[in-house]
Design a protein around this nucleic acid. Structure first.
Lengths: 336, 336
DNA sequence: GATGCTCTTGGGAGCGCTCCCAGATGGAGC
DNA sequence: GCTCCATCTGGGAGCGCTCCCAAGAGCATC
């Protein structure tokens, strides 16, 4: 129906030059006379020429595509502002480049298998991965394929708990974040400070608890999976163990919301009876009752840094740094 | 460094068949003898063969890629759960197919220009677009290029306000949603019901207000841009115009949050003095003070439906339906 | 044994591009 | 006049794949 798209040969013919010269103009080579360049550019404009990506990829052996793999089961995906912020950061950094972003959400084991097979040099030039579970085989697999890779979140360990090695990554300073929260609670005169820790197969879960423990000696800790429901459950257990607790640090905002719900149901006032601090600094926390004090992590910046690390790998230069830790800060709102 | 990846020629040689036969096996043609098929599959497995996408695309003139274009300036992007839900729906539907998803966020005019040039048949097979501003030229541009396109949100009009035509789209039943909110408020005995409407260059903004007006005669309407700040500002204006109002319907959750903030600051109790209803049913509303009653729209379902419409276009079949309207429902939580 | 059919097969052609080499051009230097 | 060099140019080769054609193999029928 539509007439065939012009090829570079068409452009060359119209400009009255050879295919080689036309190609040089398209790719910005300096070895072209001004007259030839002008003629080619004019022809490109008149014909509305767009280079065929497939043909180019075939010969250059690059795809100019980067995959963003979010390897995370189920609902957490995107319901937490954490993911959204990182995607935004990556996307805005990527907009500066010629690279295109592939989005791949891996939720089930079958999808992971499929993703593993597709994440090859045949398809993408590099991979950005959000996967923080220690038992996820995907990072090692990508790495084994020789593909440039940047993780979000310090890799805890590979399959069989062997360390993954020197994979570049970007992470928030989770330990310091945990410390900030704990220290603030102590400074406020809280005496019995509990912690709802995250899953211990994720470095974020481990590090936030570690920071907390550097400040708080007492071992009033229950574990959740970062979800609101798990936070509520942990809070019930904590109240059972220590009805007199006067502060809780939850390793994620949703868990903090769950905890607040349980605390209110148990008749505790927040923050008068029990102070609550979350982790994420999510916008939703601004409207909670009371507004949630939380450790903010700069997700957008993390996304941009991930992109930067990947671009460095792609350009082949020996990167000065392969690990980037961004700072967290306590955002006071009202629950503590 | 790494040895060259096997090509289909390598596979054919190892299997002791011709290139054609190997290709037929890879592409699942039935015209292959069981023996040949087995030999080829064995060779593929042993060599770890992965077809070169670029080479295949070059000859088939398809890319097996679909772009998800989010054409929306600034912060709204992804901070609203609306986007996240749709992306999740699209992604999960796409996982069932061979298609890959490109994510393209278009925030500035320059990015839009760039996107317009890249959204050609050379690069993607189809486009899913989240763009609800009437003056966005991108949909028409994509359509003019002959690319299959599905919008999220009923297109209001093209550039120069001419109708965009029969572009397939998926949308929530915004008018009914507005009606549901207004009717509920009336049923609850509210007498002076105000509305914080969305921008009138977006069909969602228009339709939600339309539904509201089908129930509420009084014209107590202020306009915002769906953001929290604009909601707060509109609420100030409404209180100024009608201090005695006893209910507000805001056309987005963030605007409702902004309104609640202003109402509380003005000493109004929610919902006793003033009932508030938002639009989105965002999870964040569950934790607000009080929890926000809101018109829920099934974003994930919308994403899945968009994918379905696009797949239908790609398969070339004459679609029975090109417009899908999904139902909204009022989610009662506490603010009304 | 010749004929005609179906099923299966191998490999040539060509997709649109970049890479690279050889050649053309023109000016500087002797 | 000649040589030498730098600059620019055209087009052959080939990337890995699918499409398609012609031909081979196997079998039933006359």
């Amino acid at each position: 129906m539509t007439e065939p798209r012009p090829t570079i040969e068409t452009v060359a013919a119209r400009a009255g030059v050879g295919r080689g010269t036309a190609s040089r103009v398209v790719n910005g080579s300096s070895q072209v006379s001004p007259a030839a360049r002008a003629a080619v550019l004019k022809a490109i404009d008149e014909l509305g020429y767009v280079p065929n990506r497939a043909a180019r990829n075939l010969v250059t052996r690059r795809t100019d595509c980067v995959a963003l793999v979010i390897s995370e089961p189920g609902e957490r995906l995107f319901t937490e502002p954490y993911f959204a912020g990182i995607v935004r950061g990556i996307s805005s950094a990527m907009a500066q480049t010629q690279l295109q972003l592939w989005l791949s959400m891996v939720q089930s084991a079958t999808e992971r298998e499929r993703a593993g097979r597709f994440l090859t040099r045949e398809h993408v030039d590099g991979v950005l991965m959000l996967s923080q579970h220690a038992d996820d085989p995907l990072p090692a697999q990508v790495r084994a394929g020789g593909l440039p890779l940047v993780l979000c979140g310090r890799p805890l360990a590979g399959p069989d708990n062997r360390p993954v090695g020197d994979i570049p990554f970007v992470d928030a300073d989770n330990a310091t974040g945990g410390r900030q929260a704990a220290q603030y609670l102590v400074d406020q005169g809280r005496k019995r400070v509990a912690c709802i820790a995250g899953p211990q197969d994720m470095s974020a879960g481990v590090a936030r608890l570690l920071g907390f423990r550097q400040v708080i000696g007492e071992d009033l800790v229950e574990y959740g999976d970062f979800s609101e429901e798990s936070g509520a459950k942990a809070m019930v257990a904590l109240l059972d163990r220590a009805p007199g607790l006067d502060a809780v640090f939850a390793a994620s905002d949703p868990m903090a919301f769950g905890a607040m719900r349980v605390l209110k149901a148990a008749g505790r006032r927040i923050p008068e009876d029990v102070a609550v601090i979350g982790f994420d600094g999510s916008p939703g926390g601004r409207h909670s009752d009371p507004p949630l004090t939380s450790v903010f992590q700069p997700t957008e910046e993390m996304g941009r840094e991930m992109t930067r690390l990947l671009l460095a790998q792609l350009s082949g230069e020996q990167p000065a740094e392969t690990q980037i830790i961004v700072e967290t800060r306590l955002e006071l709102r009202g629950s503590a």
